[in-house]
Design a protein around this nucleic acid. Structure first.
Length: 367
DNA sequence: ATTGAAGTACACG
DNA sequence: CTAACGCGTGTACTTCAAT
C-alpha cells in the first residue's frame, strides 16, 4: 500500500546542546564545551550529555561519566543542561522543518516523527508516477538542503541529514554526513552501503549484542550475511529476524507521526550511597508526588507501579505491583510504591545509590 | 493453550 | 588498577500461576 518506495530523511542537529550553548555564549566557540552533570572537581556522579568537537578531541563523548571527562580535560567549559532553552529551540526547528516540507509540495501531508529534541524523520511520499525516479531522489536531497539552510538562517544552528529508502538507512547515512552535511543513499545503493560497516553501527545492535557476535568473529555487517534468518532468530529472537533484513539494507519500520506515553517515571541518584531512612523515605515521597502530578497533568491513569532500586556496586532491581483498578491518585501511588520499596530494604542490606518510581499508563476507560 | 503479573536485559538519545 | 557510569522511555524475553 503506502509502504512501497518511500524516501525518508533523518534530520539530526550536530552536537545539539553544546551547539546551542555556543550560540548563546560566543566566547565558548573554539573551546572544548561539555554539557552534562556537574563535574564537582572530578567527583561528580553523572554523565556527559553532549560534547562539542573540540571536546571530542580529548576523547569526551555523550554518556561518558563526567568524572572521566574532567580527567581528560579539566580546562573544558562544563555547563549544566538548560532543557527549557533546548525545548524552545527544538520547537522552532520542528516548525521550520514543517514549513519547508509543506512549501515543497512533493508531499500532500507532512509525515514527521520527532524522535528526540534534536532529531526527526520526514517521510516523502511522491506521486506514484514519479516514485523512485532519479529526479525524486534529487528533490529529496534538495529538500534536505533547504531544511538545513532555513534552520541555519533562522536559528544559526548546524545539522546533518541522511536520505534513504527507510529509517535505518537514513539514520546511518546521517551519521556518515556529520558534521554539517547531507548524504543520500538510494534503494539500489543501500545494501552495499551497509556492508562494510562495523556491526555496532547498525541500529539495535548495542554493546552486548556486538560482544556476542565478536565472540564468533563477526565484525562487519557483511560478515553477518553468513547467518541464515533461522540462525539469527535462534540467537536474538525477534530482533534477529529484523537484523537479517537490516544487514541487507531493508527496514520496514514505519514513520510514526505520534506516539502516546506508555509510562511516566522519575528517578534520582544520591550524591553518596545511603541507607538513611529519613532521606530515603523523603526522596521516595517526592518521586511519587512528581510522577502522580505528571500523570494527572496529562489526564492519564495508571495501573502498574514500578519501583527501581540501585545498590552500591550498580546492582539494579525492580519491583512492581498491578492494581485491581486503574487510578490517578497520588496517595495510591505513594502507598503502593512505599510498600514495594520496604521489601527492598529488608531483602538487601547494601547502601542505595538510586531510587526510582514509574507508573505504567492504563487505558483511560472503564475504571 | 492463553493471558497476566513480576522481574530482567538491552537499547537509544 | 578496565574503572569511571544519569535519566527517561521502549521492547522483548522468561518464569510462574491462573484461566
Amino acid at each position: 500500500m503506502v509502504m512501497a518506495n518511500r524516501i525518508i530523511i533523518l534530520l539530526d542537529m550536530d552536537y545539539f546542546f553544546a551547539q546551542v550553548e555556543e550560540r548563546e555564549s560566543p566566547q565558548f566557540k573554539g573551546k572544548p564545551v561539555v554539557v552534562g552533570a556537574d563535574p564537582k572537581e572530578g567527583k561528580g556522579r553523572g554523565v556527559v550529555s553532549t560534547a562539542n568537537y573540540e571536546a571530542r578531541k580529548y576523547g569526551i563523548h555523550s554518556a561518558l561519566p563526567i568524572s572521566k571527562a574532567w580527567q581528560l580535560c579539566p580546562e573544558a567549559v562544563f555547563l549544566p543542561p538548560n532543557f527549557e532553552l533546548y525545548s524552545r529551540v527544538s520547537e522552532n526547528i520542528m516548525n521550520i522543518i514543517r514549513g519547508v516540507v509543506q512549501s515543497h509540495r512533493l508531499v500532500h501531508e507532512t509525515i514527521l516523527e520527532q524522535v528526540s529534541l534534536d532529531e526527526a524523520y520526514i517521510e516523502i511520499n511522491p506521486k506514484s508516477e514519479t516514485r523512485n525516479s532519479k529526479q525524486t531522489w534529487e528533490k529529496a536531497e534538495k529538500l534536505a538542503q533547504e531544511m538545513r539552510k532555513e534552520i541555519f538562517r533562522k536559528e544559526k544552528l548546524k545539522c546533518s541529514c541522511g536520505v534513504g529508502p527507510n529509517k535505518m538507512i537514513a539514520k546511518i547515512a546521517c551519521e556518515a554526513a556529520k558534521p554539517n552535511g547531507v548524504k543520500v543513499v538510494t534503494e539500489e545503493e543501500a545494501e552495499k552501503f551497509v556492508e562494510s560497516l562495523d556491526i555496532e553501527k547498525m541500529p539495535g545492535i548495542g554493546k552486548k549484542t556486538a560482544a556476542i557476535l565478536h565472540e564468533s568473529n563477526f565484525r562487519t555487517v557483511g560478515d553477518l550475511k553468513k547467518l541464515s534468518e533461522h540462525d539469527l532468530e535462534d540467537l536474538f529472537g525477534k530482533r534477529g529476524s529484523e537484523m537479517y533484513l537490516h544487514v541487507r539494507g531493508i527496514d520496514h519500520a514505519a514513520v510514526e507521526t505520534e506516539r502516546e506515553a506508555k509510562s511516566i517515571g522519575k528517578e534520582v541518584t544520591f550524591e553518596t550511597d545511603t541507607r538513611d531512612p529519613e532521606l530515603l523515605i523523603r526522596t521516595f515521597e517526592s518521586l511519587a508526588k512528581q510522577v502522580a502530578r505528571e500523570v494527572a497533568e496529562q489526564g492519564l491513569v495508571f495501573r502498574t507501579i514500578t519501583v527501581v532500586c540501585r545498590f552500591s556496586g550498580f546492582e539494579t532491581h525492580t519491583k512492581d505491583k498491578t492494581l485491581k483498578k486503574s487510578s490517578s491518585s497520588e496517595a495510591v501511588l505513594r502507598q503502593e510504591a512505599i510498600k514495594l520499596f520496604l521489601r527492598f530494604l529488608t531483602e538487601n542490606q547494601k547502601p542505595i545509590r538510586l531510587l526510582g518510581v514509574r507508573a505504567k499508563i492504563a487505558p483511560k476507560s472503564n475504571m
